[in-house]
Simulated assay, not measured.
Amino acid sequence: MKITEVRPGRPCWFEHSSADPGAAQRYYGELFGWEGETDPRPEAMCYTVMRLEGAVVASVVQLVAEGQPTAWSVSVAVEDVDAAAEAAQASGGQLLAGPMEALDLGRFAVVADPAGAVFGLWRGRAFPGAERFAEPGAAGWIELATRDVAGAVGFYHGLFGWSVSSGEQYTQWGLDGTDFGGVLDMGEQFPADLPPYWMPYFEAADVDLTAERAVILGGEAVLPPTDAPDGPRLAVLKDPLGAVFGLYQALG
């Protein structure tokens, strides 16, 4: 699906922070067919956008903070980064970085929800965000893993106005009648010391084949391909650098 307009409240950007950006670019390039384009400006610190058939879908960036893990992050589009950051803090969140300008590209902030899950706020200018969503090779779903589902539902509904659809096993979020994410309860299957986190899922034409290739390229299957109850076929992988991401195969 081509994104012609980034709507406030929707996921808009997916960034891989890595100790070895070159290795990350090669891995996802081979897995999804992405091609990297590095910003030549010195002040951009080798920021690299990843393109799928010419359309920007994600980015790879060098780790910048001591102790920062290699991981995928998710950003949500907002009308006013400063106001959204203040609202997040007023609701129990924590401001980790910003608000600040990202060259001529836009304005951003990094915040953590009350349980500690980190996400970004983005107001684009020269760069609105991802140009493809919910098609093979592009992100199409975001998921929060947390031990406080009720608290998360209240926090994100209040911050972004997300709708809530709660089932017996899974809670989904959406906006304007379209669901684009969910929240997973971190039960006993998760290590006790693992903090809450956000994770993107990338659509695959064939989850089984893509997951197999992800492992052949050096990744690890955290959750082998499986059919979600009343949902799509999915898998969760860890790339060779340690970042966790999901795959899903659209229904129909």
Results as ranks from 00 to 15, higher is better:
Met1Lys: 13
Lys2Ala: 15
Arg10His: 01
Pro11Ala: 05
Ser17Tyr: 14
Gln25Cys: 09
Arg26Gln: 11
Leu31Met: 06
Phe32Trp: 12
Gly33Ser: 05
Trp34Gly: 07
Glu35Ile: 13
Asp39Gly: 12
Arg41Tyr: 02
Glu43Pro: 01
Glu43His: 08
Ala44Thr: 09
Met45Phe: 15
Arg51Trp: 04
Leu52Gly: 01
Val57Glu: 03
Ser59Leu: 02
Ser59Ile: 03
Gln62Arg: 12
Gly67Pro: 04
Pro69Met: 05
Ala71Pro: 03
Ala77His: 10
Val78Gln: 11
Glu79Leu: 12
Ala85Asp: 01
Glu86Gln: 15
Ala88Lys: 14
Ala88Trp: 12
Ser91Phe: 02
Ala102Ser: 10
Gly106Ala: 09
Phe108Ser: 14
Gly124Gln: 08
Gly124Ser: 08
Ala126Ser: 14
Phe127Ala: 04
Ala130Glu: 04
Arg132Leu: 15
Phe133Asn: 07
Ala134Tyr: 03
Glu135Pro: 05
Gly137Ser: 11
Ala138Ser: 14
Ala138Trp: 08
Ala138Asn: 08
Gly140Asn: 10
Ile142Lys: 02
Ile142Asp: 02
Leu144Thr: 02
Ala145Phe: 15
Arg147Val: 01
Val149Thr: 15
Gly151Cys: 04
Tyr156Lys: 05
Tyr156His: 09
Gly158Leu: 04
Gly158Asn: 10
Ser163Tyr: 01
Val164Met: 03
Tyr170Lys: 09
Thr171Trp: 08
Asp176Leu: 10
Asp176Val: 06
Gly177Thr: 08
Thr178Arg: 11
Asp179Pro: 00
Phe180Thr: 07
Asp185Thr: 00
Gly187Lys: 09
Pro191His: 11
Asp193Thr: 14
Pro196Tyr: 03
Tyr197Asn: 13
Met199Trp: 13
Met199Lys: 03
Pro200Ala: 00
Tyr201Pro: 03
Glu203His: 00
Val207Gly: 04
Leu209Val: 14
Glu212Thr: 04
Arg213Gln: 15
Gly218Ile: 06
Gly218Glu: 11
Glu220Met: 08
Ala221Trp: 11
Leu223Gln: 14
Pro225Ile: 11
Pro225Asp: 01
Ala228Cys: 10
Leu234His: 13
Ala235Arg: 01
Val236Met: 15
Asp239Leu: 13
Leu247Asn: 01
Gln249His: 01
